[in-house]
């Protein structure tokens, strides 16, 4: 139950990549916030993050938390989607040895994890290499 509502609450971000852009200074927040930490404005507009970006840094997880143990090794990285704005996601559909900082990626809708075999399935975006 706890996981179900927690996941559902994040749908705008997880399903549609909606972020909040500060109406005053333009800083982008993902997830949305109530106050901008840069200019203290409380006014935001909803924007949709682009579906492509660049790998800023990454790693390959070989020892995983319980929910991800069957998936090792898997790559995860910090992806710059807008200038000065980045977020974290897995990098899928690629040979981990071939990932590099600066690599172009596009986002695809994937299963991120599930609450066991019988619980809810949690979806979101992963990055996949553009070049391949």
């Amino acid at each position: 139950m706890g996981i179900t509502a927690r996941n559902w609450r994040e749908y705008p971000q997880r399903y549609r990549l909606e972020a909040a852009k500060c109406s005053q200074c333009g800083k982008v927040f993902f997830p949305p916030r109530l106050i901008c930490n840069q200019c203290k404005s409380r006014k935001f507009e909803t924007i949709k993050l682009p579906g492509e970006g660049t790998v800023k840094t990454f790693t390959v997880i070989r020892v995983a938390p319980t929910n991800f143990i069957d998936e090792v090794p898997y790559a995860i990285g910090i992806i710059e989607l807008l200038e000065g704005f980045s977020t974290m996601m897995q990098i899928a559909d690629c040979d981990p040895e071939k990932i590099s900082i600066g690599m172009k990626v596009k986002l695809e809708f994937r299963k991120i994890q599930s609450d066991g075999e019988a619980g809810v399935i949690m979806y979101g975006y992963k990055a996949v290499p553009v070049s391949e």
């Binding site: 993902f30 997830p31 840094t57 990454f58 790693t59 997880i61 020892v63 995983a64 938390p65 929910n67 991800f68 998936e71 898997y74 995860i76 990285g77 910090i78 977020t87 974290m88 996601m89 897995q90 991120i112 994890q113 949690m122 979101g124």
Partner: peptide, 15 residues
Amino acid sequence: YECFHGVTFPGLYAM
């Protein structure tokens, strides 16, 4: 926004 995607502490410091 981090753990949800399967990151670990070694993973964060590795990045």
